[in-house]
Structure formats: structure tokens, C-alpha cells
Design a protein around this nucleic acid. Structure first.
Length: 637
RNA sequence: GCUGCUUUAGCUCAGCUGGUAGAGCAUCUCAUUCGUAAUGAGAGGGUCAGGUGUUCAAGUCACCUAAGCAGCACCA
């Protein structure tokens, strides 16, 4: 005789157990029709799940956020059903919902083509219109394994075998299609709706393991309604327009070519942007009492062996031989170098915390498939620093760092940040008690800094746990940039010491930290964030002086020189072209301000400023205009 | 690295079933001196990613290599 408490607090009493659907009917037929699943004390269940005890229950319809996951998962099932109808020789494996959609991994000798995707999509619409009932069944292991063996579905057999003894094995049947699945699902296929689209097919390793067979993964996107689907597709188009690789070329920022795969040729404008970003971070670091250093590019492999990197990352390190037969490695990171500087002279507890920063250019031989524009390259520069401190200082240093990080992100227009806590990986250096200490210290620091974190299990660095700072850009994409890592291992391995208050020799802790991550990737992110329309202080060219006709050339030159003298990054365009033509060209080059001068401006000693994207102009006295632009070009305080 | 796809002028792309390259924009030249997102005319520009093969004949077909793209794996 369950008492059902609904989200609005009202309670319904039933004489016997009740299904979600019966409950929905009891509330109203409209709800019964719209309901997709039921949430019983926070657990997602099918609509025909029997509720036997007093519970808090809410019925989920397609307008709920939770429904999205369900619709996508259902969509994955329908896709698998469609594929098996069309291509019966295909083996099905797994198909979850993911951010923005779903996928399903198939094993099939022949490749799915783009045309196949269209055929599959068409069949999916038909299956949805068929409105097959979706029914849950519970099987025992032996039956499940026999079933899949009989169908020659070895991947499914493996899945069943991997499910721990004692766990319920549920299957879902819709029409002729049956799939091993935890559920829940909507009661019939029509609930999926038609706001979905198959996007692409690509390879994916079975169980994410590169030593195992490669399956074909079909990706799709699905939404509660057409409008949301369209909005998503539009967002993808927008992302493509913002692509830093396209804008990098269009705005003449950089290029890349075959002879230097994974390295960037920075053009003047891109390098200006780079230097401006570096200068800003440097200002913030100086204010934060960091000491900037520079360490060697090539270091004997002996140091990398001592640090442990050679063991773990040898494959990804570029090496060179010197005439005395030494093997040198291009540094893939800066920490061992920083420890060498730290170790010069005896350090006292009075020297700690010691914040050692470097814009460290590193080389890593990334696998070819990992390269992506300037976001993932083989030669990059970290805004790196290592804080050498005592155990007691970990918390305060972490808090100070988080403040710095938030400030810098804000300077670049990012305010939406979340933090991931990555704990010990399977393969690691240092014993468990050391890891206990490091993880506890970092957790305490998070608490003290008031950071909310999500756990990222097993994703820590091999020498210590880490925080990863993820920011959200203007079109809702997440980028992992900053990091803070606690390291008790490297100081030990490389024998870094300090003399404590009581005269004894102690190990410092190293905090590895970066805000931007890599300069190159950061610039890629900024290009996409701003869509190439950089704020004045970052814009490679802040303004262009241009003329209505050649009569204004002399005055334009005066304006240009004055702007230059005031420190503005200014260009001039005295070509004999129509003003429309020149406005269009500089607008397309995304120059923030166009300073137009003609006869009128010359007579009155003014300039007409037209802002990027604006339709109007602002007429100001020359000095006033320059002051204003200089003001706007000042980096964030 | 793995799977698939792609590679034609600086850029975006066309080139049917093999018969020896084309457009728009950009560039250059000339004319035009014009008030806020394209002035007109003309010219130049390509070992069709590289290589090997099939063929009387290859941008087009096959194979190899490289790079790029998407995803997977990797990411100190």
C-alpha cells in the first residue's frame, strides 16, 4: 500500500503496488501519454516498473532534462535495430547516450558509407513510426550467453561475462530487436520523436583498448524537438566559422606546413597576439611574486632517467646525439630543469615558498593522429611554474594560485569555470602513503579555496594528484586549460632539499601549475572564443587610418604617426579605392577600429571612428580620439 | 599510432563513364578621386600532393608514400 509523494509535495495513496504508467493515468491522461520514464527515489525506471513501497516519485516527460539522455539512448537502440535489419551480418556491441547525442559501435567487415548513413536514418524514422512496444526482460547469465553465442555475437558474450555475478541481466525487446541493456527506456519507439540526425561514422576500439579490434562507430545527435536540433546544427556551423585553423589563415596569424608537422610558423600578426598574451601573464606573475627563469632545451637523458620521464615517456621524446656520444633529449617539460635551479645553493625554509616560473618551450613527439591545428602540436610553450614549498604551505599556495588563475581567465573573458580532481592512476611513482598525503593535501586545499570539484578517478599524473581547470567558451564548449598538481615524488627523485627551522634537512613539496596550459593552444581557444574579433588590447592591429580620397593623404599620415607615437598598433590604407571597398576589407580583417579621414576631418582636425561590426561613426577631435583608443587598448588592470 | 575519408591556381570549389585543365574571389596592370561592408576593363597564375604501375592515352583507374580532416587511442 504505497504512499507516493509527488514533486509538488502532494501524496497519493494506493491499495496495491502501482506502475509509473498507472500513477501517471491517475494524475491525468495527458501525463500518461507524455511520460517517458519514472524517477523512484532518484532511481530511473521504466514506466511499467512496479512501485511497491512508499516513495518519492516524479514522472519524466520529454521536456525534462533527464529525458534527453533517455531519448538519445533509445535512439541508439533504434539505430542498432535499423542497422541489423538493413545489414544482418552486423554485430552489435554498445551504444550509449553522450553529450549532444549518442553512438553505437558495430562490427562489420564492410565499411558504412555516407550513403549507408542516409539509408539507416530513413529506416530509423520508419521504425519510430512503427511504434514498437519496448519491453524489459530479465534473463539469467547462461541463457544470455547461449543466446549471444548462438547469434555469433562474441562482443555481446564478452559484455555479459563481464557483468558481475548477482547483478540483474536486463534485456529490452522492441519488434525483432533485442539488446542487453540496463535501461530504462521509453515504453514505445514513437516517444523518440524525429528530431535526430546521423552525423558521422568513425573507427573506435572495442572497449577503448587500442590493442583490441576496431569497430565502426556511428554518431548521431538527438533532441526533444526540431527546434533544438536545428539550434545544435547551427551551433556546429558557428563553431566551423570560428575554427582557429580557418581564422588563423584568414587573419594572417600563422600557418603550418608539411616540412614542420606539429610546429607553428607564427606570422607577424599572430606573434603580436602571442607576445601580448605573454606580456600580460608575465605582469600577473610578477605581481604574484613569481621569479621567471629559462632552462635548457636539450638535456642529457640521464636527468630524464632520474626524474622518471624517460621510463614513461621515452617514446614521445625527441632525442639528439652529441659528439661525445651522449643522448640528449629536447625537453618535454620544465620541472626537472627547475629543480636543477632550485638545487643551486642551499635553500632555507625562509626561501619557501619559492615560485619559479618559465614560459617553457617544450617538444613532445605526439602521435600523428593527435595533432590538431595549433591546439595540439609537437612544439609548444607552457606558462609553467613550480612552487617549492613545505607541506604546511600547500593549502595557502593553492588558494593563492586559484585566485591568480581566476583573475587571468577573467582577463581573457572566461568566467564559467569548473574543476576536476584527478586522483592516483594505476601506473604511478611513489608509495601509497605518499599518495595518501598528496591527495589529502590537495583535497584540503580545494576545501579551503572553496572549490567545488568533480572526481576524475585514476587520471592523476604519474607523480601526483592534480586539479584540472576547465573553462566554457562563448558557444558552450569546454576547454581544459589550467592545472595544479601536488608532487612529493620528483623532489625525492631529484634530491631537492631545504634546511628547516630546527636545522634538519627536509624535502620540499613541488606544486606544478599552469594557467593557460600551452600558449599555442590558448591562442587557438582565444581565436575561437572571440571569433577572431579580439578585444582592443589583444588585437594584432588595433586600428587602420584610411582616406576618402587622395586629398586627405597628408592629414592621414599625421593621424597615423600620432597614433603610432601613442603606442597604438595602427595601420594605414591610402589606396585609391572607394571608401566602401576599404571599409569592407578592414571589417573582414576584423580590425576593431577604422579611422576614416576626408576633407571634413582635415578641416576640423578630427577623425571619424567606425567600430568593427558597427554601422555608425563617431567624430572626435584627433587627440581625444587617440586618448580614447589608447585607453581602450590598456590590458586589464 | 589505428579506422575511414580527403588532397585540382593564394583561397573556395567545378572537371560525366580515361582523350592531355576551368570558375568566383584574391594578385598584377590600366582607367576611375569616390563620405562608411565589393568601381570597371584587361592580364598573369596549375609537373592536378609525391612516386610507381595499367593503357595508344591518366587530374580521372590500381598500388605505395606524405600531409590534412573526423573519430578512437594517447596527452608528463
Amino acid at each position: 500500500m504505497p504512499n507516493i509523494t509527488l514533486p509538488d509535495g502532494s501524496v497519493r495513496k494506493f491499495d496495491a503496488s502501482v506502475t509509473g504508467l498507472q500513477l501517471a493515468n491517475d494524475i491525468g491522461p495527458g501525463l500518461a501519454k507524455a511520460a517517458l520514464m519514472v524517477l523512484v527515489d532518484g532511481v530511473e525506471c521504466d514506466l511499467d516498473h512496479e512501485i511497491k513501497q512508499d516513495s518519492n516519485v516524479s514522472l519524466i516527460t520529454r521536456s525534462d532534462d533527464l529525458a534527453l539522455k533517455l531519448i538519445r539512448h533509445d535512439c541508439a537502440h533504434v539505430m542498432a535495430a535499423a542497422v541489423q535489419e538493413l545489414f544482418p551480418e552486423t554485430q552489435v556491441t554498445i551504444g550509449p547516450s553522450i553529450e549532444n547525442g549518442f553512438y553505437y559501435d558495430f562490427f562489420r567487415k564492410e565499411r558504412f558509407s555516407q550513403d549507408d548513413l542516409e539509408t539507416i536514418e530513413k529506416r530509423m524514422h520508419e521504425l519510430i513510426d512503427r511504434d514498437d512496444k519496448v519491453k524489459r526482460e530479465v534473463w539469467n547469465r547462461e541463457r544470455a550467453i547461449e543466446h549471444y553465442k548462438g547469434l555469433n555475437e562474441p562482443f555481446k558474450v564478452e559484455l555479459v561475462e563481464a557483468i558481475p555475478e548477482g547483478e540483474v541481466l536486463s534485456f529490452y525487446r522492441q519488434g525483432n530487436f533485442l539488446d542487453l541493456c540496463r535501461g530504462p527506456h521509453a515504453p514505445s519507439t514513437r516517444h523518440i520523436g524525429h528530431a535526430f540526425k546521423l552525423m558521422s561514422v568513425a573507427g573506435a576500439y572495442w572497449r577503448g583498448d587500442s590493442s583490441r579490434p576496431m569497430l565502426q562507430r556511428i554518431y548521431g545527435t538527438a533532441w526533444p524537438d526540431e527546434k533544438k536540433l536545428k539550434a545544435y546544427l547551427l551551433m556546429l556551423e558557428e563553431a566551423e566559422k570560428r575554427d582557429h585553423r580557418r581564422l588563423g589563415r584568414e587573419l594572417d596569424l600563422f600557418h603550418m606546413q608539411e616540412e614542420a608537422v606539429g610546429s607553428i610558423f607564427w606570422h607577424e600578426k599572430g606573434w603580436t597576439l602571442y607576445r601580448e598574451i605573454e606580456a600580460h601573464v608575465r605582469r600577473r606573475l610578477e605581481a604574484g611574486a613569481y621569479r621567471e627563469v629559462k632552462t635548457p632545451q636539450l638535456i642529457d637523458k640521464a636527468l630524464w632517467e632520474a626524474s622518471g620521464h624517460w621510463d614513461k615517456f621515452r617514446e614521445n621524446m625527441f632525442t639528439a646525439e652529441s659528439e661525445d656520444d651522449r643522448t640528449l633529449a629536447l625537453k618535454p617539460m620544465n620541472c626537472p630543469g627547475h629543480v636543477q635551479i632550485y638545487k643551486q645553493g642551499i635553500k632555507s625554509y625562509r626561501d619557501l615558498p619559492l615560485r619559479m616560473a618559465e614560459f617553457g618551450s617544450c617538444h613532445r613527439n605526439e602521435p600523428s593522429g593527435a595533432l590538431h591545428g595549433i591546439m595540439r602540436v609537437r612544439a609548444f610553450t607552457q606558462d609553467d611554474a613550480h612552487i617549492f614549498c613545505t607541506d604546511d604551505q600547500i593549502t595557502s599556495e593553492s588558494i593563492i594560485f586559484c585566485d591568480l588563475l581566476r583573475q587571468i581567465y577573467k582577463d581573457f573573458g572566461f568566467e564559467d569555470i569548473h574543476v576536476k580532481f584527478s586522483d592516483r592512476p594505476e601506473v604511478r611513482a611513489g608509495d601509497d602513503s605518499t599518495w595518501d598525503r598528496a591527495e589529502t593535501a590537495l583535497r584540503n586545499a580545494c576545501d579551503a579555496a572553496g572549490l567545488e570539484t568533480t572526481l576524475n578517478p585514476g587520471e592523476g599524473a604519474f607523480y601526483g594528484p592534480k586539479l584540472e581547470f576547465v573553462l566554457r567558451d562563448a558557444i558552450g564548449r569546454d576547454w581544459q586549460c589550467g592545472t595544479l598538481q601536488v608532487d612529493f615524488v620528483l623532489p625525492e627523485r631529484l634530491d631537492a632539499n631545504y634546511i628547516s627551522q630546527d636545522g634538519s634537512k627536509c624535502r620540499p613539496v613541488m606544486l606544478h601549475r599552469a594557467v593557460l596550459g600551452s600558449m599555442e593552444r590558448w591562442i587557438g581557444i582565444l581565436i575561437e572564443q572571440y571569433s577572431g574579433r579580439f578585444p582592443m588590447w589583444l588585437a594584432p592591429v588595433q586600428g587602420v587610418v584610411t582616406t576618402i580620397t587622395g586629398d586627405a593623404d597628408t592629414y592621414a599620415n599625421i593621424v597615423f604617426e600620432k597614433c603610432k607615437k601613442a603606442g597604438l598598433r595602427i595601420g594605414k590604407d591610402l589606396r585609391n579605392e572607394k571608401i566602401n571597398y576599404k571599409i569592407r576589407e578592414h571589417s573582414q580583417a576584423k580590425i576593431p577600429a577604422i579611422l576614416v579621414v576626408g576633407e571634413r576631418e582635415e578641416d576640423q582636425g578630427t577623425v571619424a571612428i567606425r567600430r568593427l561590426g558597427g554601422k555608425t561613426q563617431e567624430i572626435l577631435a584627433l587627440d581625444e580620439a587617440i586618448n580614447k583608443l589608447v585607453q581602450e587598448s590598456t590590458p586589464p588592470e
